[in-house]
C-alpha cells in the first residue's frame, strides 16, 4: 500500500496543515510517512503545497510526480496539478473558491463548498478540516477515529478550538461523491 497526496492552496488556507494531519494520523497507525512542503518565495501571497506519502513500507522518494489524490484549495493549485493525478485517482476541489469543473473523466472528483460548511461548523477557518474530513472519507486511507483523535493532539495547546474543528471534520466526513 502506498498513497501519494498533494495538498495545495494559498498560503494561510491550511493546505500544509491538511498534509500534517494526514502525516500525524498515519504515524498513529504505525505507517511510514513523509511530509514535504514546498518552501521559498512562492509561499507569500502565492500558492503553497505539500507532498505526503503514506506507505506500509519505508518511503523511498518523497517527491510525487503522479499523486493518487490532489487536494486543491484554490484555482492555481487545481490548474497546476490536475493533469498529474493518476487515472482512477481522487481530486478534492474547494468549490468555495474554484468555480471550474474538472474536465477529466478518468478521476473521481468531489466538489466541497468548504467555506460554507466551515461556517456551519462554527468557524470559516476550519475549511481545511472540512476538506480533511472529506479526504479521509473518500480515500478510506485511515480510520475515522484515528484522524478525529489527532485533532485533540494537534490542538492540545488551544483546547478551545477543538470542538469546532471536530465538528468541521464530521461535516466533511459526511460528504459523498
Amino acid at each position: 500500500m502506498e498513497e501519494k497526496i498533494i495538498a495545495a492552496g494559498f498560503g494561510g488556507q491550511g493546505a500544509l496543515s491538511i498534509g500534517q494531519f494526514i502525516a500525524y494520523s498515519a504515524l498513529e497507525e504505525n505507517l511510514e510517512v513523509t511530509w514535504l512542503p514546498s518552501y521559498g518565495p512562492e509561499m507569500r501571497g502565492g500558492t503553497a503545497n505539500c507532498s505526503v506519502v503514506v506507505s506500509d513500507k519505508p518511503v523511498a522518494s518523497p517527491i510525487i510526480a503522479t499523486p493518487d489524490c490532489l487536494i486543491a484549495m484554490n484555482k492555481p493549485s487545481l490548474a497546476k496539478f490536475v493533469n498529474d493525478v493518476k487515472p482512477g485517482g481522487l481530486i478534492i476541489v474547494n468549490s468555495s473558491l474554484i468555480e471550474d469543473k474538472v474536465e477529466r473523466e478518468d478521476v473521481r472528483v468531489a466538489y466541497v463548498d468548504a467555506n460554507a460548511i466551515a461556517l456551519k461548523a462554527g468557524n470559516v477557518r476550519t475549511a481545511n478540516i472540512v476538506i480533511l474530513g472529506a479526504y479521509i472519507k473518500l480515500s478510506g486511507l485511515l480510520p475515522h477515529d484515528t484522524v478525529y483523535n489527532t485533532i485533540d493532539k494537534i490542538f492540545a495547546k488551544k483546547p478551545k478550538v477543538i470542538p469546532v474543528n471536530k465538528q468541521a471534520f464530521e461535516l466533511g466526513y459526511a460528504i459523498e461523491i
Binding site: 500534517q20 511510514e32 518552501y39
Partner: peptide
Amino acid sequence: DGMIGQMMEA
C-alpha cells in the same frame, strides 16, 4: 539539502 531540512518524517 533543503529537502531533508524541510521534510517531516517519523
